[in-house]
Design a protein around this nucleic acid. Sequence first.
DNA 1: TGTGTTCCATACGGTTGCGTATGGAGTTGT
DNA 2: ACAACTCCATACGCAACCGTATGGAACACA
Lengths: 204, 204
Amino acid sequence: MTSRTQRNTKAKREAPKSLDRAAWLMAAWRALARSGVEGVRVEPLASELGVTKGSFYWHFADRAALLDALLEDWERRATAAVIDRVDATSEDPRVRLRELVHFTTSVSEAPDAEHAIRAWGAVDGAARKKLDRVDARREAYVRALLIAAGVDEGVASFRAHVVYLALIGEYARVAHGGARTSLDAWEELLRMTLGPSSPRASSA
Amino acid sequence: MTSRTQRNTKAKREAPKSLDRAAWLMAAWRALARSGVEGVRVEPLASELGVTKGSFYWHFADRAALLDALLEDWERRATAAVIDRVDATSEDPRVRLRELVHFTTSVSEAPDAEHAIRAWGAVDGAARKKLDRVDARREAYVRALLIAAGVDEGVASFRAHVVYLALIGEYARVAHGGARTSLDAWEELLRMTLGPSSPRASSA
DNA sequence: TGTGTTCCATACGGTTGCGTATGGAGTTGT
DNA sequence: ACAACTCCATACGCAACCGTATGGAACACA
């Protein structure tokens, strides 16, 4: 309150420009990962950022606009980004599959955000739609990898689904503080998944 | 407002006694499944039940007490109850395992509640503790079934973990409106899981 | 030095929900 | 009938947020 002349002057060394949408988005991500959708509130975020609501309502129409932005941001980073990265590792689908599992499993901030969005999707329609799209895309990718690895097309869908369910489950467990699944367990899953189709396909 | 003499007289045919804890608990479950922890609020529940807060604060100390009661209730129903039921179906561990999957998968109200509690556990410490206990117990049960079914003890832990992850994933997907995974997919998982250990145990 | 634009502070009204205090209507026992 | 007990209604005070309205400080630019 002594002098308010330097609000911007040294707030950030490299970005002397004042707060922008991105800063609000990042803060929103932290809040989302920490406390779920209900935790991303305008005024708390403002005080965390050291400003007031006035700033928020300059960059966003309202709280819903911020939540929409979160969803859009997530859709990008949760599909194309991951797939591109995995595709860049190797041509071998088995290697790619392993990399996919290890990567999505090792990024330490991802589970919280992902799980928060899943919980959000259970309550909100917009989040639900995004989730369904992302799920479909990722599962299809896993399925394609399995088929490329020589798994029968018939069982590939089932196995891809199961693998993907396990990944979702891992996100959920890690999100509430559970221990991460060991690499050995993932390897076992991949062995079972990439293995030959079981003897009797229909046992009734 | 005409006459308030019959509040109880015909509220419920069989239970003329007025509202009790159980009624509040059920309403809380519905709210939890529908909107998550943040959705279970005293005043909305009251108006849903056709009473006022006065009733609630008679049966419960505060909102936290209601949430605790939910957690306790869930721990009972999510472990012992399920295991007892599964154990009652057969002696064959394979049949039991199948029954476990089909049962936990088919109870249509369970996924919403389970997922809501998982989301809750990501935010709250008490819920987290309950979750960890329940997870450990259920996973140990699956592991025991696998071993009883002849799976090597070495891989049984890994496979039990994977199966359990898939179940959690299923809860998550169903909770936000996703389609239930087909029985065929579950059967495929069981086939892989109950099958022999893969050829090369260490491929590096 | 004026003028416009960008970004934020301040202040306000309104809603929702928590917890408490208190009384009162029914019911039960005697 | 009277007292005691059970269960709920009513009415407050309080806090957290949302969204809006409005002014002002800093900066650019001419």
